[in-house]
């Protein structure tokens, strides 16, 4: 009943949208329909269910035209009573970077010029763990693991107190009910303040139009996750929102050859991740910053 009455806020909002639309008429009529639709697209969280339906059809059609593939675009919401958590066994990780490339393929990241990766494996000399200043990002030996080094894969830590969400000037990024930090790629203005604020380098900027070979597209996509993206916006790891909300593991968990990666629902006492927290000695990166990551590193006890 309530939503039948316009509140003052929505009324003002609609009036101003009409004014904005009419002011931009010359611009909108000069550019194509696609760009006009993009320009006027609302914030994802403010769309009604019908508007979301229209959006899905529109995007699927457009992706088909553009890439010649039939994508399956999902907007599936968070499963009730889930809070996703991640565990990573540092004593098992061999630094092979299969997770990095598994992620790139799963999430339709730009392959080259520039290649965008959501996971970054850094190499540290044995004996030091906290001071990342001595980390090596571009290690390239013939075989891993190397005798004197350990490896730390880092991706978005899905903080409970995410500094990136705090600083975004337009609310283009937020924390979902299941704890994942997502971005509305159509709302991001590309100011890169979130990249500046992230202590884990969890965010990646599309410095140019992403390029993915036609036969390499992953067609199972989520609006807030791995759908094809545009240039000059920020993207990030979502723990594979398109997979985990359908009961699958994130791609990096599946692809890891050593089984270092664990994943599960923090609210479920029987879950794998709760087992890890209960039985292993876990720590989180940069706990002193009070970001409360949901990404737990541990060692085989």
């Amino acid at each position: 009943m309530l939503d039948r009455f316009l509140t003052r806020r929505t009324f003002l909002h609609r009036i101003s949208m009409v004014v904005l639309g009419s002011l931009c008429m010359p611009f909108l009529s000069s550019c194509g329909k696609e760009r006009a639709e993009d320009f006027l697209q609302k914030h994802f969280l403010e769309m009604t269910t019908e508007e979301k339906e229209i959006l899905i059809n529109r995007l699927e059609e457009r992706y088909f035209k553009k890439y010649g593939k039939k994508f399956n675009l999902s907007i599936q919401e968070a499963i009730p009573n889930t809070l996703w958590g991640y565990g990573l066994d540092l004593s098992r990780c061999i630094g092979c970077r299969r997770c990095v490339y598994g992620c790139v393929e799963e999430n339709n990241c730009s392959r080259e010029k520039p290649q965008s990766q959501w996971i970054r494996v850094i190499r540290l000399k044995k004996g030091s763990l906290i001071n990342l200043e001595n980390s090596e990002h571009y290690y390239n030996p013939d075989t891993v693991p190397e005798k004197d080094f350990i490896y730390i894969p880092v991706q978005c830590q899905q903080c409970e107190n995410p500094p990136c969400v705090k600083v975004c000037p337009v609310h283009a990024t937020w924390k979902e009910p299941d704890g994942m930090i997502v971005v509305d790629y159509n709302w991001c203005i590309g100011c890169r303040y979130c990249i500046t604020a992230c202590p884990y380098r969890g965010r990646v900027f599309n410095w140019a139009d992403p390029n993915v070979p036609t036969d390499k597209w992953n067609l199972s996509i989520h609006y807030l996750g791995n759908r094809p993206r545009m240039r000059n916006i920020v993207e990030k790891c979502t723990f594979c929102v398109q997979r985990v909300r359908r009961g699958r593991y994130p791609a990096c968990v599946e692809v890891c050859p050593t089984g270092s990666r664990k994943f599960g629902n923090l609210l479920d006492p029987q879950s794998e991740i709760r087992y890890v927290i209960q039985n292993k000695r876990t720590f989180r990166l940069k706990e002193d910053l009070n970001t409360e990551p949901k990404f737990y590193y541990f060692f085989e006890a």
């Binding site: 904005l20 993009d38 991001c188 203005i189 590309g190 890169r192 000059n232």
Partner: peptide
């Protein structure tokens, strides 16, 4: 410096 000037109105 903005990547998406076309979305200025979000601000």
């Amino acid at each position: 410096d903005l990547g998406r000037v076309d979305r200025f109105w979000h601000m």
